[in-house]
Amino acid sequence: MRINKYIALCGVASRRKAEELILEGKVSIDNKIIKDLAIQVQDNNIVKVNNKVIRPVESYKYFILNKPVGYISTAKDQFGRKSVIDFFDSNDRIYPVGRLDYDSRGLLLMTNDGDLTYKLTHPKHNIYKKYEVKVDKPLNESETKEFMSGVDIGGYITAPCRLKRLSFQALYEVIIGEGKNRQIRKMFSYFGKKVIDLNRVAIGELELSTLKEGSYRALTEKEINYLKKIAEIK
């Protein structure tokens, strides 16, 4: 089994993050540091990350977290900010699937299934995500049409998306399939609008529903099967 996939199956990190750990010299096989991303792990090998032995996870866990504003979606932060991982037992080695900005809130998938995380975050999938976004002033009719057809957010033209105004207080429902860094904020900024609040309410068929902010729940078997199904779509 390829080393990055093995690390993912151990629940340590996604395949992409595993490759970073390897290149940083933090991974060893049989006490020998390796930096070859193509190396294969055999059944009798002892693999260590940061000098700690790792083994494949015996049982996977899947959660939906309603992330509050003020939490990062990574394990560590150079500024010492709070992490979404703080909501879970450290022994579970739970990690977020993708990211949600520090100043954004809402639905975030959390799991120790590194292989599924890799597949769900692969660019080929473009899983649709629904957001409720409040801005300081509304878009006019021409801006709305341009927003939906695609705008330049800094050398990248966004794909067509869905946009619906929910109230006269400049509250919008935005549905996008991409996940560029701070994409929605940049899209509104293109028209001189400032995002006041951004709340992700759904990822595909998974919804926050009545889950309170700062709380999480385990995914149902049906929801887990749904994620695995869409992860395998070519």
Rank of each mutant, 00 (worst) to 15 (best):
D86E: 15
F188T: 01
G177Y: 13
K194R: 01
R81V: 11
E143K: 08
Q42C: 11
F79R: 13
K48N: 01
R15L: 04
K48I: 00
D103T: 08
G177C: 04
I33N: 02
N225A: 06
D101P: 05
K130A: 10
P138R: 14
D89V: 06
A202Y: 10
I39K: 12
I64A: 08
K61G: 02
V201Q: 12
V53R: 09
P160N: 05
K52N: 15
Q42G: 11
S73Y: 12
Q183F: 07
G177P: 06
A8G: 11
V41T: 01
R105L: 10
R81L: 08
V49G: 06
K5H: 04
I157N: 14
G114C: 04
I3P: 05
N4E: 07
Y128R: 14
R162I: 07
L9R: 14
S73G: 06
G192K: 11
S28G: 09
I94V: 13
N140T: 08
E143M: 08
I94W: 09
V49K: 01
K193W: 09
G177R: 06
G204I: 12
F63H: 10
S73Q: 12
G98V: 12
I33Q: 00
I224R: 09
G154T: 02
G214M: 09
K164Y: 15
A13F: 12
F79G: 00
D43T: 15
T158C: 10
C161S: 08
P96C: 13
Y60A: 01
L21G: 02
R185I: 03
A18S: 15
V133N: 11
E20A: 00
A18P: 04
L206V: 03
A231F: 04
F168M: 13
S215C: 14
G70R: 03
K134V: 13
L208R: 05
G80S: 05
K212F: 08
E173W: 07
K52V: 14
G80I: 01
E58V: 08
K222Q: 05
V133A: 10
L206E: 01
I39D: 03
K137L: 13
D101I: 03
Y190H: 15
S14E: 13
I85K: 14
H122L: 09
C10G: 05
N44H: 14
G179R: 11
I203F: 15
N112F: 13
F168H: 12
K17I: 02
M110N: 13
L37R: 13
E146F: 00
Y156P: 00
N4P: 02
E19F: 05
H125T: 09
K186D: 06
